[in-house]
Design a protein around this nucleic acid. Structure first.
Lengths: 196, 196
DNA sequence: GTCTATACGAAGATAGAC
DNA sequence: GTCTATCTTCGTATAGAC
């Protein structure tokens, strides 16, 4: 039963997830305000009313879940790169956003950043938690690659900030050049932090 | 006549500017979508209909003017610091945003970044131009302070990206710590770029 | 020329039929 | 439990009175 992927319950579960994924995409492209439950329900092929069955907390809940989902995915990405001893965690992190940018022709960016600049403090809090997760994971990765513990935290924060900023610049200029340039400079910075 | 600050025409001109300044603040706090012409008109003490007399292009025009205004102010700030030989252009740029963050208790950020992630390509284009202005000014400043010409452009881009990203992180965490950390790292980077 | 009143659409959310 | 129809509010924009 539970292995039957065509079962009604299976489809329903899939629908719920598709709504969260769809929400993440719309938020990444236009911010929290641009995400309409109506349009999202239409795109997912479910009636508007059903949205409140799956998400009793309404729009706020859906937004939070979407941001947390992307947040967890990226945290995992960083963790995987770290445990595999990849010494280019920078690249892994930046490439994730490069793919989002290119796949959307620079229309979409980072949904966590969108939540960070939302008016609702609730969404900002979620963004804070996700950024903190990324920061922790990146700090560990930098320490693993030889950056002194005292410096790693500050450097990891800069990696998150610079990359997020580069994504915004890339959207404005419709080029991934900002991301390339920032990664190059961050690499220099990490290298010099390792040396001393 | 033109020096009479209490003249009706004087007040009108002031009203128009106040609307642009007010728009910039709302955009900085909640993004382009959060800026309502209704609320803005109320706050400025003018009827909603008058908005379209001052800004025939409607909301889009007001948004663009607001973003360009802040953009020009910051460009001037960088230029002033450069011509006065300030070797901490980084600090001047970052402090500008630190003030915005603290004055709003971390509710407001950069309106240009907000335009960069807007759905309307028109606003993104304005953001691109403003970012380009800042980039040019910062590149010149870095060259003046001894950074090789070939490196200065890349480094300036990183300064803009990292600072903008730090503002977003600061809003999420309701602390200016990210800005401090990023400025510290950027200073190291500039210093090392000067040395070699 | 300045402002009042309103048109028109879309948003989030819910009530209630089935 | 699932979906239809609707309520209320707020957005941009405009028509037309003064």
């Amino acid at each position: 039963m539970t292995t039957d992927t065509n079962a009604p319950t299976g489809r329903r579960t899939d629908t719920r997830r598709r709504m969260v994924v769809g929400a993440a995409k719309v938020i990444a492209a236009g911010g929290v305000d641009a995400m309409s439950l109506r349009e999202l329900a239409i795109q997912a092929g479910v009636p508007l009313g059903s949205t409140y069955h799956h998400f009793p907390g309404g729009k706020a809940q859906l937004v939070d879940e979407a941001v947390r989902l992307v947040g967890a995915q990226v945290t995992q990405l960083i963790e995987d790169a770290r445990t595999q001893g990849t010494d280019t965690v920078l690249q892994v992190f930046a490439d994730r956003w490069r793919r989002v940018l290119e796949a959307s022709e620079y229309a979409a960016g980072c949904p966590v950043a969108a939540a960070a600049v939302a008016t609702d403090p609730r969404h900002q809090e979620v963004a804070r938690e996700v950024f903190a997760d990324w920061h922790r994971a990146l700090t560990r990765a930098l320490r693993d690659s030889g950056v002194p513990a005292k410096r790693a935290g500050r450097l990891a924060r800069t990696v998150v900030a610079a990359t997020e900023g580069a994504v915004a610049l890339a959207r404005a200029s419709r080029t991934s050049d900002p991301l390339d340039e920032v990664v190059a400079e961050l690499s220099e910075l990490v290298e010099s932090a390792r040396a001393r």
